[in-house]
Design a protein around this nucleic acid. Structure first.
Lengths: 147, 147
DNA sequence: TTCCTTAATAGTAACTATTATCATTTATAA
DNA sequence: TTATAAATGATAATAGTTACTATTAAGGAA
């Protein structure tokens, strides 16, 4: 299943730069970073390599709900927290929870192969700026009786 | 925060049809369904209403990792399981886990406001068709020492 | 009831993130 | 050193979603 990956300059640089970061950049952010050293690299090459590299298990592809795909130079399985205000993503180590989730092998007759847990909220910086956020409320014609 | 929603035929129909289903249709699938009764409705109207209705808490917007947005006529908070083969999404009731997750109010100095748990795997139908799936393996120049 | 204001609509264009295509270049095994 | 197939850069295409705009129609006030 593992195709033979050639060690191209572009590919090596993408892995190298990604491993330097502990942020979780998007394909486009990675493109901007590697372009500093390899100005002729194309965005398509970045996308293609991020895909191939994550398929091969060399990097991790993060598909967070409702947002753009991000990538992680760290392969170890961990959870993520996303700031709903500035969109940044941090790692969350919660071994206790990881163990509980991994023990769940079946739900509704599905054979479970992946468990994804993702928190979102306000990061320390945005928490100060934003104060509190208000909740929407239901009213009017739309209310219905029972679920 | 809750704007005054007018009771248009389009809006009422979208809510009504969505509440009939226990599948989790995409915007386009909802468009096809309501078009049967309101042939002149436009896709933009469907998108706009799904957005407004979920902001108002009348329906639920599901942003599953790596896939298209889906909608749920049920507002009650619950988890989902997605089939990696046919893409269909089912509900998962796991009150035990829900309680644990809700008790987590902070991670890495983030103030947690939402917890999303999402399983994926093979649904009963696809499990029979597909048998087992293979794992990718790492090899070659790319290996690096420690994380 | 009729009128008025403004939200909502249909139709369409635009946009964003991602994938595909293809002629050319280049890593690597023979 | 050369042959070959993987990878690249440039660009077009696609999918899903959002924005725009002239027109229609809720729903409160007169």
């Amino acid at each position: 299943m593992n195709r033979n990956l050639r060690a191209t300059a572009q590919r090596k640089l993408i892995v190298e730069e990604l491993r330097k970061l502990n942020s979780h950049p998007t394909a486009n952010e990675i493109y901007e970073i590697v372009r500093a050293k390899l100005p002729k690299i194309s965005l398509g090459t970045v996308y293609r390599n991020l895909e191939i590299l994550s398929e091969s298990g060399l990097i991790q592809k993060l598909e967070m709900a409702g947002s753009q795909r991000r990538f992680d130079g760290t392969v170890e399985d961990h959870f993520h927290v996303k700031c709903i205000s500035c969109e940044r993503v941090s790692d969350a180590e919660l071994p206790f929870l990881k163990e509980i989730l991994d023990s769940i092998e079946g739900v509704n007759d599905y054979k479970i192969m992946q468990r994804r847990l993702e928190f979102s909220g306000l990061c320390p910086k945005c928490r100060n700026k934003n104060g509190e956020m208000e909740q929407p409320e239901v009213s009017g014609w739309e209310r219905h009786e029972a679920g």
